[in-house]
């Protein structure tokens, strides 16, 4: 996707690159001028193919083979066609996990984008010192490695030693939360995972949108206010349209990240309790590495990519269209 849009852009820019009247250019130099962008893209393309393309091809190949630990070690595999795909599509757990993954993704993306927008608006409104403090706090949340964040959240919500149970109990009005188990149901566990993911995702969205808000000419909002628009109307009819391409891009990225997020979900409870927080990426990991069914796991990965593409097609089309409009 990125490759094609960049290429399209390169094609449009190419004639202008030389910047000299065309009659003075020889055929050769014109050709050189036109191919320069492609030559410049070559290193990126080669890296892309080697580091991503080849493993992806291997995964597709594995998804069509029967590979257990024995086959992995001996190197002797058998082709089974689409059997692996038939097996997972007939697996009730896989279907349940897929639905769960989509719901999980939708909740996380919605929360991330909505809360991120609110924080961006807040950044725009508050004075310099509080803004600095808020920005610094967000950079810290953002900079925390996912694994570290997950472990810290585990400790925060620990039923015996966690600071959350202690704090809730100390406040008094919520009653006693001592020894409350946060990880005893799937919903509660998902709640904590979502809190963690959204907490770490908000800074990126908020900073991007804050930048977008700054780019909207002040005259526009001023004019709207002079015309008697309320704050809500200014947001709805002036700021929001200006942020739309950016919002779309951020939602697009969030969908990709939240659909395949692994570290946080796995670290918190390895898909537990009782497999209730197994999402597709955890499912692929457990099937592959814990159960040594590598062919099936590869098939799950391929289905994941296809599902993600299906979800993103409308976004990609709309983004390409927006880009052409600009």
């Amino acid at each position: 996707m990125i490759g094609s849009t960049t290429r399209a852009k390169a094609r449009r820019d190419a004639p202008g690159l030389a910047g000299v009247p065309s009659r003075r250019r020889s055929r050769l130099s014109r050709l050189a001028g036109q191919s320069l962008p492609y030559v410049a893209l070559l290193p990126a393309l080669v890296t892309f193919v080697l580091l991503l393309g080849y493993p992806v091809l291997l995964v597709i190949e594995m998804s069509l083979q029967h590979i257990g630990l024995r086959e992995l070690i001996s190197g002797a595999t058998t082709w089974v066609g689409l059997d692996n795909f038939a097996a997972i599509l007939a697996d009730r757990q896989f279907v349940a996990v897929t639905i769960r993954t989509f719901v999980f993704m939708a909740v996380n993306v919605a929360l991330t984008v909505v809360l991120g927008t609110l924080v961006a608006l807040l950044l725009d409104r508050i004075a310099r010192i509080p803004r600095l403090i808020l920005s610094a706090a967000m950079v810290l949340a953002w900079a925390m490695p996912a694994l570290t964040g997950s472990v810290v959240f585990q400790w925060l919500f620990d039923s015996k030693l966690g600071v959350v149970n202690w704090a809730l109990s100390s406040v008094g009005i919520f009653g006693s939360w001592l020894n409350h188990s946060w990880f005893d149901t799937g919903l509660s566990t998902f709640g904590i995972i979502t809190l963690l993911i959204v907490w770490q995702a908000i800074p990126f969205v908020a900073f991007s949108l804050y930048g977008g808000i700054l780019a909207i000419p002040h005259e526009l909002t001023e004019a709207a206010k002079v015309d008697g628009a309320s704050d809500r109307q200014v947001f709805r009819h002036v700021i929001l349209p200006g942020l739309r391409p950016l919002l779309m891009m951020l939602a697009f990225l969030s969908i990709i990240w939240d659909f395949k997020v692994f570290t946080q979900v796995f670290t918190i409870r390895q898909g537990g309790p009782d497999g209730q927080t197994i999402t597709l990426s955890i499912f692929a990991y457990i099937t592959g590495l814990s159960q040594s069914r590598f062919g099936i796991a590869a098939a799950v990965s391929v289905v994941m990519v296809v599902l993600l593409l299906l979800v993103l097609i409308p976004y990609i089309r709309r983004m390409l269209r927006t880009q052409e409009d600009v």
């Binding site: 493993p55 086959e71 190197g75 595999t77 900079a143 796995f266 990426s281 590598f294 590869a298």
Partner: peptide, 25 residues
């Protein structure tokens, strides 16, 4: 940006890369 490091797809692919040289041959 930090939360997409462990893509299972790549993890499995890496197993394939490091693990079964010759599987395809």
């Amino acid at each position: 940006m930090i939360r997409h490091k462990m893509i299972p797809l790549v993890a499995v692919a890496m197993v394939a890369l490091t693990g079964c040289n010759g599987a395809s041959t």
